[in-house]
Design a protein around this nucleic acid. Structure first.
Lengths: 152, 152
DNA sequence: TAAGATTGAAATGTCAATCTTA
DNA sequence: TAAGATTGACATTTCAATCTTA
């Protein structure tokens, strides 16, 4: 039984590092795509009228960093900025045909690595509990960083 | 119940990002210390005759990156490289008196943030299960990246 | 004024090449 | 030869300042 918070923090951070590196390596060699790039493309693909801000919130990174990531994706020809008719401060992001092709090629590679590193080592029930717990922790952490102080 | 591997991956990565950023912010303002620096110092403090390689393995980062992190720590006056009598290729790392003071000041801040973001939102039992599952996944991922192929 | 986005500088990590010692 | 470490070039992220539009 493992309940020392420092040890949980350590295993969480180190496993995330190893998991990210392994998936990234696989995507690079198989598709020439970075995991960071794939993450952005998945958000664009899943979000109607997607803006830079939507990606930043979905990935829990800064808006500035997201803008640069979109620059790189656009330079690689995987996505494009389109004029936003309802708000001229922002653009609507969409995948190019090339980007959709990349996404289709990368998806099975992504899923295979997740199966190998997440599903194979533990039971389906354990994975489901892990997902539930992480979802609760994530929502709690995000809301506590948004709300400076609880009502007295 | 949450068992889509992509969703688990997403919650794992995003929660790690938010957790790291929150703890880092707290450490910066309260102690003028980075979470990355604290992690290195904790390994040095916990490892007898600690070398650069030991830190790299403990933190799941590259040796080159670790060498640079130790450079920054040394420049800040928190640690020092001492000659290694048993192997002249490497140095023995140790915390300076200043580094030990920083560690003592940072420890309660670190623990308080972990209590707030890990212990408070879920039950002790759920946190223990989370730690167990992450430890299993971490060991599995590290060994699978070390061993290229299983015996036929 | 505030919201969305962009930009350049700084921090931190990876990678490949190199150096020293086992 | 290989192991441990260092270094410089490069990639990616954060932060602060700025710009444009609501």
């Amino acid at each position: 039984v493992q309940s020392d918070p420092r040890q949980v923090f350590d295993d969480l951070v180190r496993f995330e590092t190893v998991l990210w590196a392994a998936v990234d390596e696989r995507l690079r060699t198989a598709c020439g795509l970075t995991l960071g790039a794939l993450n952005v493309m998945l958000v664009i693909d899943a979000t109607p009228d997607c803006r830079v801000l939507d990606i930043a919130q979905a990935l829990a990174i800064t808006v500035g960093g997201t803008s640069q990531a979109v620059d790189r994706l656009e330079k690689a020809g995987h996505c494009a900025r389109r004029a936003n008719p309802s708000d001229r401060r922002s653009s609507i992001l969409e995948l190019t045909a090339d980007g959709r092709t990349m996404l289709e090629q990368a998806s099975p590679v992504f899923d295979a690595e997740l199966a190998r590193l997440l599903q194979q080592p533990i039971t389906a029930a354990a994975l489901a509990r892990l997902g539930d717990t992480l979802a609760v922790l994530r929502r709690s952490a995000v809301s506590s960083s948004t709300d400076p102080e609880p009502p007295a």
